[in-house]
């Protein structure tokens, strides 16, 4: 029957795509497990371990991610134009990866890792297999969620200049996010949460300042410039 032939074709196509998905899933589960290791080593920052050591360790995982994403790109390369068909299979894990490398980069430089930089770091190639912008933005929000905890623990450990630096960074980041028009989706929800991170950091900064514990570093912001005082 021609009917049967057509369905036989479909079955083959769907099985192929199922196979692809299995291969993606294997890579993704490796990404996830590298994520867990990197997360564990970065978490030590809350216990005030010396940062350089931590970063050293953390960086070693970035290369591993590079390999994973190369594999993912290869798998996807076999079915060009279907990036978004399988996107759901790796997006949540990739958001976590982004949050980790953005956090690491911030610990190292005090700056936000840009989208293009993140792609480069993970060995992604925008034209073939890039980093979805919404995934990047969500990853950045996840990273912001870690900052209040970081600030609290740093102050406890005696680093009284930390709140100022984080507040400055977060204020700028929040201002940048406000430029976006979002739908009522997950990113919107995450962005709403960033406000609470900002407020918590502001409170800690206030606690430190009012007690005269903050060192006389540069102020958070020049007078007049946009953002919080």
């Amino acid at each position: 029957h021609s009917l049967e032939k057509q369905f036989e074709d479909f079955r083959l196509q769907l099985e192929e795509s199922g196979g692809l998905r299995d291969r993606i899933r294997t890579v993704v589960s490796e990404i996830e497990s590298t994520t867990r290791l990197m997360h564990a080593s970065l978490l030590l920052v809350h216990q005030s371990r010396p940062t350089p050591e931590l970063l050293e360790k953390a960086k070693s995982y970035v290369n591993v991610f590079n390999d994973h994403y190369k594999q993912l790109a290869e798998v996807l390369g076999e079915c060009s134009g279907q990036y978004y068909r399988y996107h759901g299979d790796w997006r949540s894990e990739t958001q976590t990866v982004v949050s980790l490398i953005v956090f690491m980069h911030w610990l190292e430089t005090g700056n936000l890792l840009m989208h293009a930089e993140a792609e480069e770091k993970l060995g992604l190639n925008s034209s073939e297999f890039g980093l979805d912008i919404e995934d990047y933005l969500i990853g950045v929000c996840f990273m912001s969620n870690e900052l209040p905890r970081y600030v609290v623990n740093q102050v406890t450990a005696g680093d009284y200049d930390c709140p100022r630096k984080v507040l400055k960074f977060l204020t700028e980041l929040h201002a940048a996010f406000r430029m976006l028009n979002l739908r009522n989706d997950f990113l919107r929800k995450k962005f709403d949460g960033m406000k609470y991170d900002l407020r918590r950091v502001e409170e800690v900064y206030y606690d430190v300042k009012i007690r005269g514990l903050a060192p006389n570093g540069e102020p958070v912001e020049d007078q007049g410039a946009q953002g919080p005082p």
Partner: peptide, 15 residues
């Protein structure tokens, strides 16, 4: 309308 709402949220004391 959603865009208008986001625009209003861009308000700070300086702008």
């Amino acid at each position: 309308s959603k865009k208008v709402i986001f625009q209003v949220h861009r308000m700070s004391k300086y702008n």
